[in-house]
């Protein structure tokens, strides 16, 4: 599942280094607020979920995004509103 999340994020971060779970959004991937919106939108599409931007305001690394999704029960299966 982590791989799928990483692939989804990589698809909207063109011209960036290879993404790992430890990648920092700002320092490593130079993600700004619009990039972040693109990431959240791509995840919504990929997993058929609805994400609230506010819930992801404090994420720093890719791992943080994965943890947020897990914490909200996404990996339990099925579509969800987060």
């Amino acid at each position: 599942m982590e791989d799928r999340i990483i692939m989804t994020i990589q698809s909207v971060l063109d011209k960036r280094p290879l993404i790992t779970l430890d990648s920092h959004l700002l320092e490593d991937l130079r993600v700004d607020s619009l990039d972040k919106l693109m990431i959240l939108s791509a995840l919504e599409d990929e997993f058929a979920i609805t994400i609230s931007e506010d819930d992801f305001a404090d994420v720093v690394t890719i791992k943080d995004i994965v943890m947020k999704l897990k914490a909200r029960g996404f990996f339990a299966g099925g579509a969800a509103t987060i």
């Binding site: 909207v12 990039d35 693109m38 939108s41």
Partner: peptide, 12 residues
């Protein structure tokens, strides 16, 4: 709701 698309990328 705001959804940015990749620069000039019609497919996206």
């Amino acid at each position: 709701k705001i959804r940015p698309f990749l620069h000039n990328n019609l497919e996206h």
